[in-house]
Design a protein around this nucleic acid. Structure first.
Length: 487
RNA sequence: GGCCCUAUCGUCUAACGGUUAGGACAUCAGAUUUUCAAUCUGGUAAUCGGAGUUCGAUUCUCCGUGGGGUCACCA
């Protein structure tokens, strides 16, 4: 059998990071089995449609390296891959279900419906039109009475279903609503549309979030009534917020795009996400450190549905940060520079810096100096900004300069004098040459070298925290160093 | 509230029914250091509670409790 998985987001806003995780699992399962990864846009609810959301889905999948094999953008043999263009298909199958007696026309008025629903909350909703004979219903339809088509859920049946992740689950059909299949505007509902589309698109494995688990019996029934074989379903755990409930935006990004904007590397995000609810089957020796760094390729290789975890993981931003730092370290300076530039062009708001940064021949070295101290690409930018802009309004009244506060101007003068003697040809402006001289200035004042260098750091960077001072000064160049010392 | 799912350090997780319950993040202490980091060493920290099955339960069963999800003409 051909393995075909699908990721089916709704264009109702920014793609949630959990969507990327689901897409990752779909992608990995397809790739591992030399199958196809499909993306289908589920936009049957036009009222919630958000302009640009569909584009963002594809933009994000691309950014995270999860490009589909079939989609509205790639084409494929089972299109259209967007549900708003499949309206007629759903209607056709709904009518087939009516003909077979597995669905019915429902003419409940909104008010009437509301009352009924509230009264039957927690139990299976049944419409009074459920058993109305088809002739009467057809007549009402012909008369132009607004209607929906509902699934006729069977009474007194226990549906036993085996989920690929959650295991065996039982549902009592008396508690399942007569779900709407076709809305009054003629559009198919989610429940009908997924089943029809997954079947028609020959989806072999369905991965979706656990939120969908309670709606599964409706889909099981639809497969049965339509006479189709149901593919295995995998309800993967939901990502939880540290403060409880679903991951929310209160303490940071939750959208796929938001994390990229913040300056997280897509590969770090993916690595973090893959380990949320899945663990590698690699053999572990007792006490041995376990591997946690996996590239997408390695994940595809290792991934198996049997290694899913059932319980819902909490989204731990500290761990994400750690992954990002790890990837900073793994990458060569050249690679990191590329990631940084891509990020800078796409997301940075410091456009006034773009001329400096995009034309900086030393950018790679500068990034190399800060890569171990920054946690995001945004922080890399923050930490190299001083190379391009002289510090302003330096606050000398901090604890790090307490020991030297009264000799700051003397020190600066000494350093200026000392540096002036060195060549300003960039090749000869090397920190190894002037470092010993700097130390001897420190000795002259009989202060700790660290205190002395802090004065320099403040004058040049404007902050008590910086990348290695001497290397930074070397990259800055003699003229700029002197300029900042005399400012 | 009904229904469904779930339960190992604070968090992510590992552990053929037999381990001193392991690792990672975070945290704490120490080493190193021109700042901040990074690095190295070490430490604190968990099987939700109660029954049962078993020679033996983190592991299997049941009941509580906690957590999550869901009950729309939203997906």
């Amino acid at each position: 059998m051909d393995i075909r998985t699908r990721f089916a987001p709704s264009p109702t806003g920014s793609l949630h990071i959990g969507g990327i995780r689901t897409a990752l699992y779909c992608y990995a399962w397809a790739k591992k089995n030399s199958g196809k990864f499909i993306v289908r846009i589920e936009d049957t609810d036009q009222t919630r449609f958000v302009e640009g959301a569909t584009e963002e889905v594809f933009e994000m999948l691309n950014a995270y390296g999860l490009n589909p094999d079939e989609s509205m953008n790639n084409g494929g043999d089972y299109g259209p891959y967007i549900q708003s263009q499949r309206k007629d298909i759903y209607l056709k199958y709904a009518e087939e279900l009516i003909k077979k007696g597995y669905a019915y026309y429902c003419f409940l008025e909104p008010e009437e419906l509301k009352i009924l629903q509230e009264a039957t909350r927690g139990t299976g909703f049944r419409s009074k039109y459920r058993d109305q004979d088809i002739e009467t219903s057809k007549k009402m339809v012909d008369e132009g009475k607004p209607y929906v088509i509902r699934l006729k859920v069977p009474e007194n049946e226990t549906i036993i279903y085996k989920d690929g992740v959650q295991g065996s689950i039982k549902f009592d059909t008396n508690l399942v609503n007569d779900e709407i299949l076709i809305k009054s505007n003629g559009f198919g509902s989610y429940h009908l549309a997924v089943v029809v589309d997954d079947h028609l698109m020959k989806v072999s494995h369905v991965f979706r979030a656990v939120e969908w688990l309670p709606s599964t019996p409706k889909q099981i029934l639809l497969y049965r009534y339509l006479g189709w074989e149901m593919p295995p379903f995998y309800h993967v755990s939901a990502i939880l917020d540290p403060s409880g409930g679903k991951l929310s935006k209160r303490k940071g990004s939750v959208s796929a795009k938001g994390f990229l904007q913040d300056g997280y590397l897509p590969e770090a995000m993916l690595n973090f996400l893959m380990l949320l609810g899945w663990s590698s089957p690699e053999k572990r020796e007792f006490g041995e450190k376990e591997r946690e760094i996996y590239s997408l390729e390695e994940f595809v290789e290792l991934f198996d549905v049997k290694d899913f975890n059932k319980s819902n993981p909490v989204f731990n931003r500290e761990k994400l940060t750690w992954f990002n730092k790890e990837y900073f370290k793994i990458k060569t300076n050249a690679e990191l520079k590329e990631s940084f530039i891509n990020w800078f062009k796409e997301y940075s708001e410091d456009i006034d810096l773009s001329n400096y940064i995009l034309q900086d021949y030393d950018l790679e070295e500068k990034i190399g100096l800060v890569k171990e101290r920054a946690t995001t690409l945004m922080e890399i930018l923050e930490q190299i900004k001083f190379f391009y802009k002289s510090p302003k309004d330096i606050d000398w009244n901090i604890k790090q300069t307490q020991n030297t506060i009264e000799i700051i101007s003397d020190l600066k003068k000494d350093f200026v004098e000392m540096f002036t003697g060195f060549a300003d040809n960039s090749k000869e402006w090397k920190h190894e040459d002037w470092e010993p001289r700097m130390r001897s200035i420190g000795d002259k004042y009989s202060k700790k070298h660290g205190d002395i260098f802090m004065v320099l750091r403040m004058a040049i960077v404007g902050s008590p925290f910086s990348p290695p001072l001497f290397e930074s000064m070397q990259l800055l160049g003699k003229n700029e160093v002197l300029k900042r010392l005399t400012a």
